[in-house]
């Protein structure tokens, strides 16, 4: 990752809701709509906010729709960036958002998911209060067609069991300065589709804090052929688990190792819980 440009060294407080998109034309309205409502709520509370959609060279009707949405909602803080070539990795698009965002804090929102606007101010207050690199709340996993809740994701604080598998989703509010300092997300093929797991471990084992806020941050929709519904081939899983062990726990010393982030739970009206 290149050196941080001078203009990025002191970004103003506020939130950029960054939505990477690749061929999600039919659900973009939902994610962008929730992000615009969240931005409006934040601004009403005197928190500067914008919505930044980064299209990763979609081949469906996304780009046309996004241009129309930008024309309609530009005044409400919607910006659209269209990549000419597909990056091949969602992490690369999120890394781009680290440079393109106007504000210090970034909420990563997948184009097929939805943020719960009412609770974003709570996440914002939490990250300001705790100086965390990343704060997150629970996500309700919803079947996209039936609308029925199926599971709860990101529902617990950081614990050692995250070495065995990830349970903290990308839908989180991050401190862009800390992410830039930590070299952003891993965007090569080793952890394709599980970049969030790698980022969580990287931040935690670099001495940074990941803080769980016990509220619902949003909805994760299970779409056909999405990462969460497609069964990962065993050889891919083994390769990724091998990478995690090699990178973060080669000597099997991590469990019980002193960390800044184990079991951090915070709510701005309660303090640490």
């Amino acid at each position: 990752m290149p050196n941080t440009p001078a203009a990025l060294r002191n970004p103003p407080n506020g939130i950029t809701i960054a939505i990477p998109n690749w061929n999600h034309e039919f659900v973009l309205g939902r994610s962008v709509g929730s992000a615009l409502r969240a931005a409006a709520l934040l601004r009403a509370a005197d928190v500067p906010a914008e919505v930044l959609v980064l299209d990763d060279a979609s081949r469906d009707g996304s780009t046309t729709l996004l241009r129309q949405l930008e024309a309609l909602y530009f005044e409400d803080g919607l910006r659209v960036l269209l990549r000419v070539e597909n990056s091949g990795a969602p992490a690369a698009v999120r890394n781009q958002a680290l440079f393109e965002a106007r504000y210090r804090y970034i909420l990563f929102l997948d184009a097929d998911n939805e943020v719960l606007p009412e609770n974003l101010p709570l996440l914002y207050r939490s990250i300001l209060d705790t100086n965390a690199a990343l704060v997150y709340g629970s996500l309700i996993l919803v079947h996209a067609e039936s609308g029925e809740a199926q599971h709860l994701l990101s529902a617990e604080s950081f614990q050692d069991r995250i070495l065995d598998d990830n349970y903290i989703d990308t839908l989180a509010l991050v401190d862009r300065m800390q992410l830039l300092d930590a070299n952003g997300l891993l965007s090569d093929a080793r952890m394709a589709g599980r970049e969030d797991w790698e980022l969580n471990l990287h931040l935690a084992f670099s001495g940074r804090r990941l803080v769980f806020v016990p509220v619902v941050a949003g909805y994760y929709y299970t779409m056909p052929h999405s990462l969460i519904t497609e069964k990962m081939p065993p050889e891919v899983w083994q390769r990724q688990l091998g990478y995690v062990r090699r990178a973060f726990n080669q000597l099997d010393l991590r469990r019980g190792h002193l960390l800044n982030t184990r079991h951090l739970r915070y709510h701005p009206d309660l303090g640490y819980i």
């Binding site: 719960l116 009412e118 609770n119 309700i140 809740a149 199926q150 709860l152 617990e156 619902v216 709510h267």
Partner: peptide, 25 residues
């Protein structure tokens, strides 16, 4: 966390306001 509670939480958020404390480990 169990199914019945998770379904209820979904309804609670939809019907009684989103900004309550939900903790279902």
């Amino acid at each position: 966390l169990e199914k019945r509670r998770m379904l209820f939480a979904h309804r609670l958020i939809k019907r009684c306001g989103a900004n309550g404390i939900l903790y279902l480990p």
